[in-house]
Design a protein around this nucleic acid. Structure first.
Lengths: 202, 202
DNA sequence: GTAAGTTAATTGAATGGTCAGTAAATATTA
DNA sequence: TAATATTTACTGACCATTCAATTAACTTAC
């Protein structure tokens, strides 16, 4: 080993999570081990366990990091847009955009999705994330409803519908989106969503 | 070992796949090994490799079996319904039903979804399955359009939209459907889909 | 119709590899 | 000196896969 760094926890932990994320993208869930992450980072495997105690903690830490990125990356922009109509348009444009769908590497995203079926902690984190997004939309939809920008009877169901469609888009991109770019179909899905939101359908 | 069965490939292979499926449900993708499947079936691990050569073949065989179940289980019913309007209603009811969503154990379903990101063969099988469903819907939508049951401009996009929404429902059930039964939200999603299909939206 | 020959089903035992995790030793910093 | 960072060396478990041996069932010939 060239040089020993002797950093502290504050610096090492995120560095390890970054490495974990990279290896995850390259090797997938099953191909990722503590040894491989260590090799990727040029450190000893035991050091990872020193900081995260076990693999499950490591995984949860990464998921928490991903979710915080997911939360912060896009939505902050919306708060300082005064005009509700303008904010609504941007919100919908964002949610149905390619950039939004790639906030986290889709392979990694799906991998953790899958693990949520067997790992209660993972499942809870994802549930919180989706509820957070749903509730944000809810709260916004109340405003848009009041302003006459949309017409929905049940804001919670409407928000659920948008999230559902948004997640379905990931599937579409993976399996049915071969012959057209993501944005092309996403735009049509968005238009359909708008029809539903403006029709007292939900 | 109690009794040796001495069956032949015709009987053994599906038996092994059934065992594989069971272990997969109980233990998940990462917890499933050839040894465990063998133990579950009361046979020797080598026998599994004798029939399927390696683990990847085993996996592909199971996926193919699942897909054929998926294809055959529901859609056959539709063909002998003469009245298009009646067939359309039943088709939509089926696609947005709990029963349909549970054709395959959702944990296993998601697991293979995930693997499609890294395994070209898996990805191709899933793509074929979704395209098959999409194309079936396409072909039906042409008829319904002609009969005035729906009003869509682009049947392919409309079919894509329905599949997208259908897949999104799986997510919803997993993460946002805690406080209501599947059918409750699925019904609302279906109503929204109907609005889109009857509005020249797509 | 029974013995020999052939094939397929099944097991046994072993291989090399990787895995997560532990406990203790060494190095660095403050 | 005390605390933290990092490495070393090791464990036991499990993994997919291989190869050779064994057993049962079927085929053919006499």
């Amino acid at each position: 080993m060239a040089g020993r760094k002797n950093q502290n926890a504050e610096l090492r932990k995120p560095e390890i999570l970054e490495g974990y994320y990279s290896v995850l993208i390259e090797e997938g869930l099953e191909g990722t081990s503590i040894s491989k992450i260590a090799k990727h980072l040029g450190i000893h495997p035991s050091l990872i366990l020193h900081y995260f105690k076990n693999k499950d903690n490591l995984r949860l830490a990464l998921i928490e990091l991903m979710i915080s990125k997911y939360k912060s990356k896009h939505l902050i922009e919306f708060d300082h847009i005064e005009d509700p109509a303008e904010r609504f348009t941007l919100l919908m444009d964002t949610i149905f955009s390619y950039k939004w769908s790639r906030t986290v590497d889709p392979g990694v995203h799906f991998g953790f999705y899958y693990q949520s079926f067997r790992n209660k902690n993972v499942s809870e984190l994802f549930r919180e994330m989706f509820c957070w997004l749903r509730d944000y939309l809810c709260q916004q939809f109340v405003i848009y409803n009041r302003e006459g920008i949309i017409q929905v009877n049940d804001v919670k169901t409407a928000a659920d519908f948008i999230v559902t469609l948004m997640e379905g888009l990931e599937f579409h991109a993976q399996f049915l989106g071969q012959d057209q770019p993501f944005d092309s179909f996403a735009e049509k899905a968005k238009k359909s969503a708008l029809v539903v939101l403006k029709n007292h359908t939900l």
